[in-house]
């Protein structure tokens, strides 16, 4: 409340849904206000710097009380001052802070990616409409059966944060969701049920060498390295290639990442092709995202020797 001495301002509730009513009362204990001893006490109100009218009556124990109702409070934040007339001036003698807004919106489109360099799980979501109220947002996570813990807290109004490795349960389903809370309520996002490894973001493989296979075949042999830190994973990879004049890429799927090499036939002779490769964890569910395509590697197939 405001000052316990000369004036005391009570507002309820302090935080209201935008557009709803606010009631306030100001109690003046005249004997505690130096200089107000004589004359009639005239109470008035100021909402920030705007005059608003209240009703005044005598309160218990010789106090003067003014009540005020603001039918539709549509400011997100304001300071309501109780004032009294004194020496011809309006004196602000008490204040109450009022805030208005909405319960937090349900956070949407929660998605996470595991960074394989530090095994931090970075999650992003959409915050939804602004609630205009101080809202605390945290990312919650729990291993099956385990107690829910705060995985991370977005900084300064961002809608992403990173759960450190220590709080993750690898190779097992975890439940992850966003919880937003303010004075008017709490909202939770859908629960993401994932094994962090299934959303690992892989770096692309590196095409090491491409050679035509000798004795005039139209085949080539490819060798590649999988990305650092993925050597222990079963990877499913794709190769794409095309000659400059081709409009579309030719795609080879189902390549076993760990094999490290493969052969492919059907190439034109003496033609420059560009090759790219990408991989993802084969055991991962549909959620698993492909790595980026590897940097392009060009190779010109050998000329066909003139027959006979």
């Amino acid at each position: 409340g405001g000052t316990l001495g000369c004036a005391s301002v009570a507002v309820s509730p302090r935080v209201v849904p935008l557009g709803s009513a606010v009631t306030a009362s100001c109690t003046i204990q005249r004997e505690l206000c130096h200089g107000l001893e004589q004359g009639k006490v005239r109470i008035s109100w100021m909402l920030d710097n705007k005059l608003v009218a209240g009703s005044q009556h005598q309160g218990p124990g010789g106090t003067e009380v003014s009540n005020l109702t603001l039918p539709r409070f549509n400011l997100t934040q304001a300071r309501l001052f109780c004032c009294v007339e004194w020496n011809g001036t309006k004196q602000r003698v008490g204040v109450a802070e009022i805030r208005a807004g909405y319960p937090p919106a349900k956070p949407l489109n929660l998605s996470c990616v595991l960074n394989l360099s530090d095994y931090g799980l970075t999650c992003r979501w959409e915050q939804g409409t602004n609630s205009h109220l101080p809202t605390s947002v945290v990312l919650k996570c729990t291993g099956s059966g385990a107690q829910a813990v705060t995985g991370c807290t977005p900084r300064g109004g961002h809608s992403h944060c990173t759960v450190p490795r220590q709080l993750l349960q690898l190779y097992r389903q975890m439940e992850i969701w966003v919880s937003a809370t303010n004075a008017l309520g709490t909202a939770e996002s859908e629960r993401l049920c994932i094994d962090p490894m299934d959303v690992a973001k892989l770096d692309p493989p590196t095409l090491q060498s491409i050679q035509s296979i000798p004795f005039q075949t139209d085949c080539i042999a490819l060798a590649w390295d999988v990305a650092w830190g993925t050597e222990h994973m079963e990877l499913q990879c794709e190769l794409r290639y095309r000659a400059p004049e081709d409009s579309a890429w030719a795609l080879v799927t189902g390549i076993i990442g760990q094999a490290g090499s493969a052969q492919r036939c059907g190439f034109l002779f003496g033609t420059q092709y560009c090759f790219q490769m990408r991989c993802r964890r084969s055991s991962a569910t549909a959620l698993a995202s492909w790595s980026e395509w590897s940097p392009v590697r060009n190779y010109t197939t050998h000329e066909k020797a003139p027959a006979g």
């Binding site: 000369c6 107000l36 004196q91 602000r92």
Partner: peptide, 15 residues
Amino acid sequence: LQLCKEDELLLVRQE
């Protein structure tokens, strides 16, 4: 804090 003019706060200042 919407506290801008001295002459609106003289009464409280006495306390």
